[in-house]
Structure formats: C-alpha cells, structure tokens
Amino acid sequence: MNHRNEAEPVATTVLIVDDQRLQRLGMRMFLAGQDDVEVVAEAADGDEAVERVRDLRPDVVLMDVRMPGTDGITATRRIVAGAAPTGPRVLLLTTFDLDEYVLAGLEAGASGFLTKDVEPQDLLSAIRAVAAGDAVIAPSATRRLIDRLASREPRPASPPDGRAGEVIDRLSDREREVLVAIGRGLTNTEIAEQLFLAESTVKSYVGRIFVKIGARDRVQAVIIAYRSGLVDPDG
C-alpha cells in the first residue's frame, strides 16, 4: 500500500469547464504535468459544473464564460453562493479581455478572469494565486473594470448602493485610504510607497479591510469601493 509522505504538499484540485472538448483537453494535458495541480474532472456546461463542484469540491474552477445552456456567469453565481469562505474559487475564461460578460461574472463572485490565449505558465500562476485566496486581475484591468462600472451605471450624487456605504463606514481613515488605492488598481507595493508604509503593514490592512467589508478578494473590494462612492472613476 502506498502512503503519502506527510511532508508532501497537497495538490490544488481543479475543475475545467468549457463546451469545447479540445480546449478542455489542452488545459488538462498541460496541468497534468504539474506536481502541485490535479485536474479532478471536466464539465461541458454550467449545470454539469455545478454538479461536479457539489460532488468533488475542487479548489479552483476554470470556468468558460460563454456556453450553450447554463452559461458560466449563472454557474459561477450558483457555485459561489454555496461555497465556504475557503472556496471553491472561480476563474473566468473569456475570449476577449473584459468583454460584456466578465463584469457580471466578477460581480457574481468570480475571483478574476483569464483570456483563453493566456500563456501556460500564466495560467498555472493564476491557479496558484486564486487557490491562495488572491484575485487574478492586473492593475490595468482593474482600472478598466472601474471604467466599465462607470459606463454601465453612471453614479448619482448619493452612493448607489446603501449596503456598500454601510460597510465602508466600518473602516478607519487609514483603511479607507488603502481601499481607495486598491480601487484605483494599485498593488500592495505601490500602496506602500504612496502611503509611506511597510508592505507587510499594507498586507495587514488589506486583510482587515476584506474582513470588514465582506470581500473575498481584490475584485470584490474594487466593486464595493465603487458602489459606495468611495472611488471616483474620473479621479
């Protein structure tokens, strides 16, 4: 009988969801060669994805956005609604960077997005990052996300989301400063430089902010900052 070495790290389990079999096969073949990632199943549509998540509880779901039947957005919403704080985490896969469906997916609780032409090593890095609780969205993409929010819902004089305003009130002045910086797409390193803080201190602030505002990751924090009126896309 084979026994797992207690010192051996546990692999990140992944579910691949895409209606194109060749796309699923390509990702599976690449990920199969990684020691710290295990593909536990595939799914061809959103309904099947929800079933596989319920049965297998993978750490990360690679979710195609556009699929016949139940699309990736609806499936993401259903998966995240029933998820524990530790996951599963959903990574959206899209043909176009920040296409019309991606914002809805991020608002549904996805932890970020990748384009389907992503470099294999970047895909691997994204899976590892999301499994660790981070969001996979570049600062430039965060800024485009703010722009898209602004274009979809022009903000009135008062905060558009009362609940978002309430959670912002829980923050200290310094925590608000950090959240504004997150909303503008700054990395922890850039925030540390801007606010003259140690990067470790910024990381501590970010963690506390996420807890206070109920954000799973940076993506949701950006959305809450915008909804509350704390971040001005024109500023």
Rank of each mutant, 00 (worst) to 15 (best):
A75C: 03
A129C: 12
L123I: 04
M1Q: 14
E48Y: 07
L91R: 01
G183E: 07
V202G: 04
E153K: 13
M29L: 15
A81R: 04
A83L: 12
P85A: 08
E8K: 07
A108G: 07
D36N: 09
V178S: 01
A215C: 07
R78K: 15
D117H: 14
Q23M: 15
A84L: 13
V219Y: 02
Q23C: 14
D117N: 13
V118M: 02
R4T: 12
V130M: 01
E166Q: 15
M67P: 09
V90W: 06
A221W: 00
Q121M: 12
Y205I: 03
R152T: 09
A225E: 05
V61R: 00
G46L: 04
D64L: 04
S204M: 12
D117Q: 13
P120Q: 05
T201Q: 11
D45F: 03
R144Q: 14
L56I: 04
A110E: 04
A11E: 01
V118R: 02
L186N: 08
Q34H: 11
A221N: 09
D173E: 14
T201I: 05
R52H: 08
A110H: 02
V17Q: 00
V61Y: 01
T74E: 06
R21W: 11
G165T: 05
D122H: 12
L22G: 01
S204A: 13
L179S: 04
A83K: 13
V40F: 07
A215H: 01
A32I: 02
A132S: 12
V40P: 09
G165N: 08
S125L: 15
D169T: 13
T95N: 14
A129F: 10
L56D: 10
D122I: 12
E8A: 03
L230S: 11
L62C: 03
V219C: 05
P58N: 06
D117G: 14
A164T: 07
A181N: 00
G72C: 08
R77A: 12
A164K: 02
D59K: 06
E190G: 10
L56R: 02
R152I: 08
F113A: 10
A104R: 08
D161E: 10
D99K: 03
V39A: 06
A108H: 08
E193F: 11
E119I: 14
V167A: 07
S125W: 15
A129H: 10
D19S: 07
G69Y: 06
D122P: 09
R170I: 07
T74H: 02
Q194G: 09
F30S: 01
A84F: 10
P160S: 05
I191E: 00
P139G: 11
P233G: 12
G162T: 14
T189M: 11
T94K: 08
P85S: 10
T95P: 07
M63V: 01
L91N: 01
V50D: 01
